[in-house]
């Protein structure tokens, strides 16, 4: 579920790309703060969403694999020992 939500969030972000101003073809005399700052932003968002995919994927997998109704689910050793 988290995964899907993050996927939609990524999509929403991708759709928001038009706010990225179209850069002038020739490099101006001055530094363009828009391109510097927005490029930094998108570099970081790429990394953030990659990590987000890994983390949410892990959460989803954990929930799927270790649910008590999973065919391979077995009592934890702590349950056997009664110490949890």
């Amino acid at each position: 579920m988290t995964m899907r939500i993050l996927a939609y969030a990524t999509l929403a972000l991708a759709l928001s790309l038009p706010i990225l101003p179209v850069m002038a073809a020739e490099p101006g005399e001055y530094l363009d703060r828009r391109s510097e700052i927005w490029n930094l932003f998108f570099r970081m968002m790429t990394v953030a969403f990659t990590i987000g995919t890994v983390v949410s994927g892990t959460i989803v997998w954990l929930c799927w694999r270790f649910r008590e109704s999973h065919p391979k689910a077995k009592r934890t050793k702590y349950e056997e020992a009664g110490e949890w």
Partner: peptide, 27 residues
Amino acid sequence: LATMWGGRIKFSTPMLWAIGGIALFFS
């Protein structure tokens, strides 16, 4: 996450909120 790993998870209401909380905490 490491606590959930290898457990036998029961998705009762408190656990749902906690897992949702982890996901949103990360975001």
